[in-house]
Amino acid sequence: MISGRLLNQYDMPVALGITHLAAVAFLLNSSEAMPTWVASYAYFFAVSCILLCRIFQPPKGFLSGIAVAAVMATVIRSINQSSTNLHGPGVDFPLGLMGAGAGAIAALIYSKSNNGSVIASGFAIGCAGTLGGYLLSMFFACNTVLYCGPAFSWGF
């Protein structure tokens, strides 16, 4: 188990390890519900976000939070795809990843401006911001212009 002290010291390797292991697991288990392009989009999104956020010196654990949120977004996308009969690749997942990127940037700005007075854990900030941006983007896109399946669309 990775403790808080180890996460403070090894945030970048842990984040890259989570991202690489998840990408390999998703690519080895590709199916109709989880095509390879979904795993590759999530992989490149997570690596790009981790490297770009690293420039701005995020709080410790923030990068691992982004990696876990990217894995969770991919799992949510595959569960939603397997529960409906949508045909072909859609633009829902790339739109969701754009929202996740915006959420990661907003969480990074929040963590830099807050100085740790409210939430001390960078992991929680990174994960909540990235996953929150993904879900908000998906709910907005899937209820205005797209039908993304039963998990995000309210039948409009």
Rank of each mutant, 00 (worst) to 15 (best):
M1C: 09
M1N: 14
I2S: 03
S3C: 10
G4C: 04
R5N: 14
R5G: 08
N8R: 14
Q9Y: 12
Q9K: 12
M12K: 04
V14R: 14
V14W: 10
A15T: 06
I18E: 00
T19E: 12
T19A: 12
H20L: 10
H20C: 12
L21M: 12
L21G: 09
L21W: 08
V24W: 06
A25L: 14
F26V: 08
L27A: 11
L28K: 05
L28W: 10
N29K: 13
E32Y: 12
E32Q: 15
M34P: 01
M34D: 03
P35A: 04
P35S: 02
T36F: 07
T36I: 11
V38H: 02
V38M: 05
V38W: 00
S40L: 12
F44Q: 00
F45I: 03
V47M: 03
C49R: 00
C49E: 03
L51C: 10
R54G: 03
I55G: 06
P58H: 07
G61R: 00
F62T: 03
F62N: 05
G65H: 01
G65K: 01
A67H: 03
A69P: 01
A70C: 04
A73N: 05
T74Y: 00
S78F: 00
S82N: 08
S82E: 12
S83L: 12
S83G: 07
S83A: 14
L86P: 03
H87I: 08
P89D: 13
V91S: 09
V91D: 08
V91A: 05
F93W: 01
P94L: 07
P94R: 08
L95S: 11
G96V: 06
G96C: 06
M98G: 11
M98P: 07
M98T: 11
G99Q: 03
G101R: 04
A102R: 05
G103L: 09
A104S: 13
A104G: 13
I105D: 02
A106I: 11
A106G: 14
A107G: 07
I109F: 10
S111A: 13
S111D: 10
N115A: 15
G116D: 11
V118H: 15
G122E: 05
G122Q: 04
F123Q: 04
I125D: 03
I125L: 09
I125W: 01
G126Q: 09
A128F: 15
G129L: 04
T130L: 07
G133R: 02
G133H: 04
L135F: 11
L136F: 15
S137V: 08
M138I: 14
M138H: 09
F139M: 09
F139R: 07
F139S: 03
F140A: 12
A141H: 10
V145Q: 13
V145L: 12
Y147F: 13
C148I: 07
P150T: 15
P150I: 14
A151V: 14
A151M: 15
S153R: 10
S153C: 09
F156N: 13
